[in-house]
């Protein structure tokens, strides 16, 4: 069995730390894809798939992907809300898979809000959460 190096130990520590963050439900970011009837009919499931692909591709362990109901802005679906720990929730509207991936890279990974696709900054009311 090969010897563990300091670097290996650091990697293990980092991995454990990230999974602890997740267990506590406090990832560095939360992405909520609106999954009401309107969202689903407009393609919200594909948005979710695009985000899952980004998480997989980047080996990301500390972003929480979740769903919510309709927020009442059905004509702007598909929509998602992105919240970085310590930052305000930002609602993105009229999404495509490409836009969702761009937002993931810029806002979730780089903390840079994509103003072009954002509708509003601030909390929201949805029918569920």
């Amino acid at each position: 069995m090969p010897k563990l190096t300091l670097k290996d130990l650091e990697k293990i520590r980092e991995k454990a730390r990230r999974s602890t963050i997740l267990r506590e439900g406090a990832g560095k970011a939360k992405i909520t894809v609106h999954m009401g009837t309107c969202g689903i009919a407009a393609g919200a499931r594909n948005i979710m798939r695009a985000l899952v692909e980004e998480v997989e591709r980047g080996g990301v362990e500390d972003v929480i992907l979740t769903n919510s109901g309709c927020a009442g802005l059905c004509s702007h679906e598909p929509m998602m809300t992105v919240q970085i720990v310590g930052g305000p929730p930002v609602k993105y509207v009229d999404l495509t898979e490409e836009k969702a991936k761009e937002i993931f890279k810029s806002h979730v990974m780089g903390r840079e809000i994509v103003k072009e696709y954002a509708l509003a900054i601030g909390s929201e009311q949805t029918s569920t959460k």
Partner: peptide
């Protein structure tokens, strides 16, 4: 899963 989350790259796998 390491945490109870499926939304990590390991969970997705």
């Amino acid at each position: 899963l390491p945490g109870n989350y499926f939304s990590s790259s390991e969970g997705i796998k």
